[in-house]
């Protein structure tokens, strides 16, 4: 059968479409022009200035604190939830599944507003804990889904074997289930971490004066002072992403062989 060229052409165009903005950012990070307009000469000035901006580093610190704590909490809660959903087929689990699934599709703006109004109604100040709660809430669902998918291949005969050999529930959890499920739990945690670092909408509603996260800071910089600084910042972030993806690919390959 002779194949049509059309799908190939669309794929190439879509790839160009995907990489065009990335390319523009990297090129402009070396552009002397302040407004990222026409090319006015090569400079490394934006990178140098970036390292002098205390506020950016502070926002970065907040982002990391939230991402680490929210992914840790959602790893714990999500794994427990996935176990319950996998093992039991009761009415409670039907309700549980709906509860876990809905936050995945509801627009983030609704999650953000509802949490903001809850904290306003309760008279709670906007601090890092509030942000942590918001991020954990949307991360739980993602972790649960990832772990649930991994549980499909989980061999429960291992658990029964351990039971027959006289292991108690804690020993089984610690020495059989967790080691076997660790890759799934970490994959879920990694997803939660990435989503939390990237999150703008929820943080927009829940961050206060002292608790700016990096995406919020970036948005403020787009509007106010220096788009050129953001080009430099994004190029660095892009390099880190490429390195991490390359590293995880390499680790995967080594594990398989």
């Amino acid at each position: 059968m002779k194949r049509s060229r059309f799908p190939l052409v669309v794929t190439v165009l879509v790839m160009l479409f995907f990489y065009l903005p990335v390319l523009v950012l990297v090129v402009n990070s070396f552009n002397r022009s302040r407004s990222s307009g026409p090319w006015t000469g090569f400079t490394l000035d934006w990178y140098v200035r970036l390292f002098g901006r205390r506020d950016i580093w502070e926002a970065f610190g907040n982002t990391l604190i939230i991402a680490v704590s929210a992914s840790a909490a959602s790893m714990l809660l999500g794994t427990l939830a996935a176990f319950a959903l996998h093992r039991y087929r009761t009415r409670l689990q039907d309700a549980h599944y709906t509860m876990v699934y809905t936050p995945l599709v509801v627009p983030e703006i609704l999650l953000g507003i509802s949490l903001l109004l809850l904290f306003v109604a309760l008279g709670v100040e906007r601090n890092l804990t509030v942000l942590f709660i918001g991020h954990t809430t949307f991360c739980i669902s993602y972790v649960t889904m990832v772990v649930l998918a991994r549980l499909q291949d989980f061999d429960f005969a291992m658990v029964e074997a351990a039971q027959d050999l006289g292991a108690g529930p804690w020993t089984i959890a610690r020495r059989v289930i967790i080691p076997l499920l660790a890759p799934g739990i970490f994959a879920g945690g990694l997803l939660a971490f990435t989503l939390s670092i990237d999150d703008y909408v929820i943080s927009f509603f829940l961050s206060g004066p002292g608790t700016t996260t990096l995406p919020i800071k970036i948005n403020a910089m787009i509007r106010r002072d220096a788009p050129a600084l953001i080009n430099a910042l994004s190029s660095i972030m892009l390099c880190v992403t490429f390195l991490l993806v390359g590293l995880s690919q390499k680790l995967n390959k080594e594990n398989r062989t």
Binding site: L77, A81, H96, S114, L118, G134, T137
Partner: peptide
């Protein structure tokens, strides 16, 4: 197994939605 995640989402997802 169910309670921790369920209660969390009840408090910070379902309840706030009705609160709105």
């Amino acid at each position: 197994l169910t309670a921790p995640g369920f209660v969390w989402l009840l408090l910070f997802f379902l309840l706030p939605t009705f609160n709105v």
